[in-house]
C-alpha cells in the first residue's frame, strides 16, 4: 500500500480564538516497503500528519455537511486536499475507515497508557476481536501468542499477568503487540522509544526491524532522535511549522547540516564525526549508520574490511 498525500492542511479549533494551523499544504508520498522516518519539533505537525493516515483525523471532504468551496472572483477555487492509502481514498465519505484502520496500525506516544484489560493476552486480543468478528477462540489465542512472542515477551509468563504488573519496557512491548496482532500492512509509531533507557531503545528498534518486511510491509516512525533515524530509515521527511521541508534519504538529508540547524534540528553523531574528519582532511563516504561509519573508517585506514 502506497501512501500519497496531496495538499494536506489542517487547522485545530477552526473559527475560534484558539485556532492553530497544524498542517499547511503538505504533499508527500511514502512507498510500500519503506522504513520511513518523520522528524520535526513539537508542534511541527508531524503527529497531525500521521493521524490522517488511518482516518483519526478526517479530511474535510470526507465529513458530512461538507460544502465544496467556490471559486471567488479572480481567484481559482482552492485545491482540495487528497490522501490515498493503497486503495482507500480518504477524501471520500464512503470510505470504510474501519477496514482502513485494520490495515494501518498506529502506536501512539507512550502506548502503555492504552493498556486496560485484566490480563496481557486479553489486552492484546482487543484489536483482533474488534476487527475480526467471528474469529474462533483458538485462532485468536494463536495470533495473540504470535504477537506477544514477536515483540520479545515470554507468552507463558505474561499471558495471565495484569498488564500493570509489567515493567516499563515490557508494558510498551505489550502495547505494541496489541497493535500488530492484526498484522497491519502499514505500522506507524509515534516516538516509539521515548522515555526508555538506551538498552530499551535498542530493543525497540531491533523489534521494529524484525517487524519490517515480515509482519508489516511499511514502517513509519516519528522521532526526535536523529541517531535513531539515521540508523534505521530509508527515507526521512522533515516537518517545520506545519510544512514539509525535506523528504530525502538520510544521507542526503544530513548533508544539509546548516539548513537543519536553522530549523533547530540536530544531525546524527556519525554525520558530525564525518564532518570533523572532513575538517582534518579525511573524507569518509558512508551511509551514516554506526556499522557503516566504522566500516568506512577502517577501509580508509587500509586495515580490515
Amino acid at each position: 500500500m502506497n501512501i500519497v498525500a496531496e495538499h494536506l492542511s489542517y487547522v485545530y479549533n477552526q473559527g475560534t480564538p484558539f485556532a492553530e494551523k497544524a498542517l499547511d499544504d503538505v504533499s508527500l508520498t511514502i512507498g510500500e516497503g519503506e522504513f520511513f522516518g518523520i522528524i520535526g519539533h513539537t508542534g511541527s505537525g508531524k503527529s497531525t500528519f500521521v493521524k490522517h493516515l488511518n482516518g483519526l483525523i478526517r479530511l474535510p471532504s470526507s465529513l458530512k455537511h461538507f460544502k465544496k468551496p467556490k471559486a471567488k472572483k479572480g481567484r481559482p477555487a482552492p485545491v482540495l486536499p487528497s490522501l490515498k492509502v493503497g486503495g482507500f481514498d480518504l477524501a471520500d465519505r464512503k470510505t470504510d475507515f474501519y477496514a482502513l484502520r485494520k490495515r494501518v496500525g498506529m502506536v501512539f506516544q507512550y502506548p502503555e497508557a492504552q493498556l486496560f484489560a485484566e490480563t496481557v493476552s486479553e489486552d492484546v486480543a482487543f484489536g483482533l476481536k474488534n476487527f475480526e468478528k467471528g474469529m474462533k477462540e483458538e485462532e485468536i489465542e494463536a495470533a495473540v501468542k504470535d504477537a506477544i512472542e514477536v515483540v520479545g515477551l515470554d507468552y507463558e509468563a505474561v499471558k495471565d499477568k495484569s498488564p500493570f504488573d509489567l515493567s516499563g519496557g515490557q508494558k510498551r512491548r505489550a502495547a505494541i503487540a496489541g497493535v500488530i496482532v492484526t498484522k497491519p500492512e502499514i505500522l506507524i509509531l509515534d516516538e516509539p522509544a521515548a522515555g526508555l533507557d538506551p538498552l530499551g531503545k535498542r530493543e525497540i528498534m531491533d523489534l521494529l526491524h524484525r517487524l519490517h518486511g515480515a509482519w508489516c510491509k511499511t514502517v513509519i516512525i516519528v522521532s526526535h532522535d536523529m541517531d535513531e533515524i539515521a540508523e534505521n530509515c530509508t527515507h526521512v521527511a522533515v516537518f517545520a511549522e506545519g510544512r514539509l521541508v525535506y523528504a530525502l534519504p538520510p544521507k542526503e538529508l544530513f548533508a544539509k547540516a546548516d539548513e537543519l540547524k536553522e530549523l533547530g534540528l540536530d544531525v546524527p553523531l556519525t554525520s558530525k564525526l564525518c564532518h570533523l574528519l572532513h575538517e582534518k582532511g579525511i573524507d569518509i563516504d558512508c551511509d551514516l549508520t554506526v556499522d557503516g561509519f566504522v566500516r568506512a573508517v577502517l577501509w580508509k585506514r587500509g586495515g580490515a574490511r
Binding site: K51, N54, L56, Y98, R101, K102, G105, M106, F108, P111, A113, Q114, F126, G127, N130, F131, G178, V179, T182
Partner: peptide
C-alpha cells in the same frame, strides 16, 4: 484515539 486505532467503536 489509541483504542479507535485498535478498532474500538
Amino acid at each position: 484515539s489509541a483504542q479507535m486505532a485498535r478498532g474500538a467503536n
